[in-house]
Design a protein around this nucleic acid. Sequence first.
DNA 1: ACGCTCGGGACGCCCCGTTTAT
DNA 2: ATAAACGGGGCGTCCCGAGCGT
Lengths: 207, 207, 207, 207
Amino acid sequence: MARQERAVRTREALVRSASEVFDREGFTVASLTSISTRAGVSNGALHFHFASKAALAEAVEDAALARLREVAGRSPSGLSPSPLQCLVDATHALARALDADVVLRAGFALCADAAHASTADLRGHWRDWVEQVVAQARDRGELRADVDPRDVTSTVVAAMVGFEVLGAGQPHWLAPRTVTRFWRLLLPATTSREARVRAEGSPAPPA
Amino acid sequence: MARQERAVRTREALVRSASEVFDREGFTVASLTSISTRAGVSNGALHFHFASKAALAEAVEDAALARLREVAGRSPSGLSPSPLQCLVDATHALARALDADVVLRAGFALCADAAHASTADLRGHWRDWVEQVVAQARDRGELRADVDPRDVTSTVVAAMVGFEVLGAGQPHWLAPRTVTRFWRLLLPATTSREARVRAEGSPAPPA
Amino acid sequence: MARQERAVRTREALVRSASEVFDREGFTVASLTSISTRAGVSNGALHFHFASKAALAEAVEDAALARLREVAGRSPSGLSPSPLQCLVDATHALARALDADVVLRAGFALCADAAHASTADLRGHWRDWVEQVVAQARDRGELRADVDPRDVTSTVVAAMVGFEVLGAGQPHWLAPRTVTRFWRLLLPATTSREARVRAEGSPAPPA
Amino acid sequence: MARQERAVRTREALVRSASEVFDREGFTVASLTSISTRAGVSNGALHFHFASKAALAEAVEDAALARLREVAGRSPSGLSPSPLQCLVDATHALARALDADVVLRAGFALCADAAHASTADLRGHWRDWVEQVVAQARDRGELRADVDPRDVTSTVVAAMVGFEVLGAGQPHWLAPRTVTRFWRLLLPATTSREARVRAEGSPAPPA
DNA sequence: ACGCTCGGGACGCCCCGTTTAT
DNA sequence: ATAAACGGGGCGTCCCGAGCGT
């Protein structure tokens, strides 16, 4: 049991270390040696836990997917006041997480990397979730009548991808201000008169 | 002279071939052998024209920059009817070009790749151009009074990056419809009452 | 432990093989492939034991230095009958060793090769040892009064280098006769009347 | 005619440049590009004058041989006062030339380099010449009766090789003092009573 | 179960010495 | 005499599999 505990810690250290290296260097350039060294274990230990480099990347993606589910997990519950507000909050939360969490960042980077066939489709998951929430907003009458839900979905998804990609180079793209700017422009053209949605996003949930 | 003509052709074949491989596999994974083979020249010929892999990438970026300038080159001339319409047209043209032109696509991909210090900053060029055109639109009174030009710029830039990145996986992200969707949502919230701007973009200029 | 035993054998096989190739082809021309092939191991095994070609050469030099110390290691002990005789014997031993031992030969060749910054200065070691023994000979009154010890040192050192270099092409330069010839000429001009030194050198020590 | 003049100058520039590079880097490491660049001609021009790298090296050796003949060319003429003095002078001249003349140095280095089958055997030429002069000295009665001419030859040849090789690293080995030291030790044991030979060597001949 | 030392191939980039076509 | 193109390796590195310890 104590045995397994240690193994779990080793595994996690490897996933974290791999995330950092993948995030900084990309899947192909990252060397298993640098990953295992940074994790403080030997090269052979890495191969005990992960059969191949691809398997390691998969583990990173899975971990990232778990993180993503905390941000865009369940659909807004029936008691949620406003799907659209939920969407705004989620974009803020995602930007914040992409800025702070290497694992999430690495996960998105990996599933964009053509050199690695990704199993956990982070971007797809995010898109589906946005689509669903926008649909709920329409059902609740939060969308203006002349707005096509698909337009909203594709714009939000594309913009967030843009923030993520640009944020890899200049962090200010992931700052709350940037997301607020986006919604400040988009909300007036999107929400019906009676809907009341703030562009700033709710404060970070407790860790 | 006649000799140089052939050299020019070889160089161009190499740049094109490199663009294709870089676009498909990324800078690091792409092997010089596959590039030279696809171009139908030997490995040594490649190194005659380009001293290193980085130099080859630089040439691709330069070629892409030239392409980009055709889309977002000069600021809209004084006789241009509307800067904002010009911007819409440019986004359509850029999407079309990213879909059709490997070189441009590879150029954008390269200057995003952290493993390669890019010299021609395509994204920066595009952002600056958008910024400038938006400023002109404001000066002409095309922007609504309650709209911050910086909001428009950052949203347009981010969305286009999103279209580009997502378009690498699923081409429909670069289809005209996608861009039209985006502007259909954004234009009403952006343009002043008197400005008349179409979201569809002007037809493709003659090649 | 048993594992390490095999590793040690592999390492030694590589050093030996490297010595042979370095001796025959020189540092630069020698290819790591030919070295690993001759040692019967793979290219990767070579790089597991030696990080680079230079590191391999260093190992050869270290091994050669160990061999050299057996010939010109400690200064003649106090009970040694005659420093000068010790010197004569050492030159014979060195010639014999250079003829028989590839490692020693390669070591000398390597530290002469300008293309490789040598760490173990074999020639310097030898020179210093000769200098020291000649000084002892003078202190014991074995040198003629009109002889400058530095003359002896530099002549002996230069001649031995000559034998070594020429011996690479024609082995007879390293034959005992050649060394004997040298001392037959030099001893009468060097030793004081009372010193009794043979030019032939003592028989080879038991391996 | 003027055409040919220029070709001759180009050839000489190449030989000189090649000597410098061969001397500094050795035959194998030296690149034809660095040689042609240093000579101020193009890579193709080099191949016009010399069919291959080996041919270039051969030209260097030939030039070096010509230089060597100026030092150890003809046997001492009948009217020469003393063969042995002639030998001493020649060793001094050779050391001086090896120190000052890159071509000669490169020539010796080349014919020692195993990677290149030398055509002009500089070392062999020098050995033969020494052998011959020593024989003349014996015939003239300049050698002591108990001295074997072969002992003298091999010692002189080996020592000079030693001076040359060591001089490549530390120039003082080629200084006049070093040669003088050598003869100061050797002459008393070699020359018959009536022979009068100076160890210093005659001054440099006019260029 | 967990870990590591040791070893195996496979290329990748660069560079080099050379010939063709001009 | 040149500009252009050709193959051939060399070194380094990388991702991975055996097999012995614990």
